[in-house]
């Protein structure tokens, strides 16, 4: 078996250790004997959504996000089709904001990909700190770090990724964090997200393999004792 991971615009959206998310997916595939391949799409590269089984959209600074925004309008339609066909996407921080309709900043508005029904508005001050959330999908709490000026609001009936245990989450008020829509996960958590939250990583990998090979695929268990230690430690932080 083999999985191709597409990293969208790593030259612009790479603010919070997103290479760690890529590395985590690649290693957890190869440790199970599954071939993993990385495709990096830089600004102005043509993206063919049939070429990859997972796409990662990371976080960049507000300025960099504005630069990416122009590029996004050209891939919007194909990306939408990929998502509706149950394609797997993991979007972190700035990438999460770009999943929605728009990101309204003080001086201007960045148009989003409109893949998921959500929108983001810049608020007073940044929401910064360690964060732990609980998702019904996983026994292990999901833990990491958040740092965002935007406040994200989910549309009616859109499912958040989890409930905030400690930290701010989507907007600092709702008590919810992130989004899950079909096989798209969006979240403000970096740290990076996947190494300390191996259940989230394996969920993404299993979804992509199952879709690609047309059957339910159960991944072999790995020794996650180091991951558990780091997860437990991070949970205890505020």
């Amino acid at each position: 078996m083999n999985i191709r991971i597409g990293h969208l615009y790593p030259d612009l959206l790479n603010l919070y250790g997103d290479r760690g998310n890529i590395r985590c997916m690649m290693k957890r595939l190869s440790w199970r004997g599954i071939d993993a391949e990385l495709v990096e799409y830089k600004l102005n590269d043509k993206v063919n959504f049939n070429d990859c089984d997972i796409f990662l959209l990371g976080g960049g600074s507000d300025r960099e996000q504005k630069l990416v925004c122009k590029e996004l309008s050209s891939i919007k339609k194909d990306f939408k089709k990929y998502v509706e066909d149950m394609g797997v996407v993991i979007a972190i921080c700035g990438g999460y904001q770009l999943l929605g309709a728009y990101y309204q900043m003080d001086d201007e508005s960045v148009e989003g990909l409109e893949l998921v029904d959500l929108y983001t508005v810049q608020g007073e001050g940044r929401l910064i700190g360690n964060i732990t959330i609980k998702s019904d999908l996983f026994d292990m709490p999901i833990t990491g770090f958040e740092n965002h000026g935007g406040r994200t609001t989910l549309g009616e009936g859109v499912t958040p990724l989890g409930k905030v245990v400690n930290g701010f989450g989507n907007d600092g008020n709702s008590g919810y964090e992130g989004v899950i829509y079909k096989n798209v996960i969006g979240t403000y958590l970096h740290g990076p997200l996947l190494p300390k939250n191996p259940q989230v990583c394996d969920y993404i990998l299993a979804k992509s393999l199952s879709k690609k090979y047309g059957k339910d695929i159960i991944l072999d268990p790995l020794d996650d004792s180091a991951e558990d230690r780091a997860n437990n430690y991070s949970q205890a932080l505020n």
């Binding site: 250790g17 760690g20 360690n130 770090f145 740092n147 990076p192």
Partner: peptide, 15 residues
């Protein structure tokens, strides 16, 4: 360490 002066966010380790 991840004290305030270090930066509490240690995601940079992966860079």
């Amino acid at each position: 360490n991840d004290n305030a002066q270090d930066g509490k966010d240690i995601s940079w380790l992966w860079d």
